[in-house]
Computed example of a mutant assay.
Amino acid sequence: MFMRMDRLLIDIPRLKEPDPNAAAAIQELLGGKFGEMSTLNNYLHQSFNFRGRNKVRPFYDLVANITAEELGHVELVTTAVNMCLEGYTKPGDPDDAPLKKGKDMRNSHHFIASAQTSMLANSMGQPWTGDYVFNSGNLVLDLLHNFFLECGARTHKMRVYEMTDNPVAREIVGYLLVRGGVHVMAYAKALEKLTGVEMTKMLPIPNLENKAFSETRKFEEKGLHRAIYRFSPNDYKEIDKIWNGVHPEDGQPLYVKDGPPEGAPIPDLEEKPEMFSPGLSSEEIEELAARLSRNI
């Protein structure tokens, strides 16, 4: 089961001006083949379907625990898309075409299929699909796939970073490069334990360290490139049988941190009357609040 907290993994900046085209680019990191929906659902279903987990508990713990962090990554990327879209259109009479600006944007689906919010789709508007999930049941093969998946995800993050100087996009990509780098190395170390093949010698893939991207540096200075969070008060305690040793880039010790990150408040999305969202007038909201108060 899962416990949810109403917090975002990190605080993200508020934009002075909306940037729908940056939102379209960030969509790739959510609903693309190597996006967060893919990493989440690969690890989620591998953990659900894991055979013999009590005999190889550290490997199960690793996959299951990373799954929980991926849920937070989906939320983070979703929020970034929403922040880039926030405030692009204004309320108006339907005959005045208040959504007119949306038709010229990179992804007009944001203005039709959603209330100027994220979608489970890539940067071209193509929907995410369960066909992106790989779960063979063979431990080595699934871990090898996860290693490949995280390397592909890292490549796409780096390219999105180079596509836009949008501060929201770069903030979340900087964080995700650091955290994704942890997952790449975790799967590499798991494969080393299983097979003896020194997978970490191939890293980083692509061959460019995170510190080349300025928004990663503050997270690495905090040691987040060396930490695995344990997203459970009582479970997944055998992660440290895999996640141990030192980081290959700076020689500092790897460590397991009990509990999730402190996090930050989730930005509240304003009402969008021109999108009929949430579809309640101010009077109706006040009446609803009063009715709910009476029921306490």
Score class of each variant (00 low, 15 high):
residue 189 K to D: 03
residue 237 K to T: 12
residue 231 F to K: 02
residue 227 A to R: 08
residue 190 A to L: 10
residue 214 S to V: 12
residue 208 L to T: 14
residue 225 H to N: 13
residue 235 D to M: 05
residue 198 E to N: 15
residue 221 E to G: 08
residue 213 F to C: 06
residue 198 E to S: 12
residue 232 S to C: 04
residue 218 K to L: 04
residue 225 H to T: 01
residue 199 M to W: 14
residue 186 A to Q: 08
residue 209 E to H: 12
residue 222 K to W: 00
residue 227 A to E: 10
residue 189 K to Y: 12
residue 218 K to H: 08
residue 228 I to F: 05
residue 231 F to V: 01
residue 219 F to M: 04
residue 218 K to Q: 11
residue 238 E to G: 02
residue 201 K to R: 15
residue 205 I to K: 05
residue 218 K to A: 06
residue 204 P to L: 12
residue 188 A to W: 05
residue 217 R to V: 11
residue 218 K to T: 09
residue 226 R to W: 02
residue 228 I to N: 01
residue 209 E to R: 15
residue 211 K to N: 07
residue 235 D to C: 04
residue 210 N to G: 10
residue 220 E to G: 00
residue 190 A to T: 09
residue 216 T to E: 04
residue 200 T to C: 05
residue 200 T to M: 12
residue 189 K to R: 15
residue 227 A to Y: 05
residue 221 E to M: 12
residue 222 K to H: 04
residue 188 A to E: 10
residue 186 A to G: 11
residue 193 K to A: 14
residue 237 K to S: 07
residue 223 G to R: 03
residue 218 K to R: 12
residue 222 K to S: 11
residue 203 L to I: 14
residue 210 N to D: 15
residue 230 R to Q: 07
residue 216 T to V: 06
residue 234 N to G: 02
residue 227 A to Q: 09
residue 189 K to I: 07
residue 216 T to A: 08
residue 202 M to E: 13
residue 207 N to L: 02
residue 225 H to P: 00
residue 193 K to F: 11
residue 234 N to A: 07
residue 207 N to K: 14
residue 212 A to W: 06
residue 214 S to Y: 08
residue 228 I to V: 07
residue 218 K to P: 00
residue 209 E to M: 09
residue 193 K to G: 03
residue 225 H to E: 10
residue 217 R to Y: 03
residue 222 K to R: 14
residue 202 M to D: 08
residue 196 G to T: 09
residue 231 F to A: 01
residue 217 R to T: 07
residue 200 T to K: 12
residue 206 P to F: 04
residue 217 R to D: 03
residue 211 K to W: 10
residue 199 M to C: 09
residue 211 K to P: 00
residue 223 G to I: 01
residue 203 L to C: 13
residue 208 L to F: 05
residue 227 A to N: 00
residue 197 V to R: 13
residue 222 K to T: 00
residue 193 K to H: 14
residue 215 E to P: 06
residue 224 L to T: 01
residue 234 N to L: 05
residue 229 Y to E: 11
residue 192 E to Y: 13
residue 220 E to L: 03
residue 189 K to W: 04
residue 211 K to V: 12
residue 229 Y to D: 09
residue 192 E to I: 03
residue 237 K to P: 00
residue 200 T to R: 15
residue 191 L to W: 03
residue 238 E to Y: 06
residue 211 K to L: 05
residue 212 A to V: 02
residue 226 R to H: 11
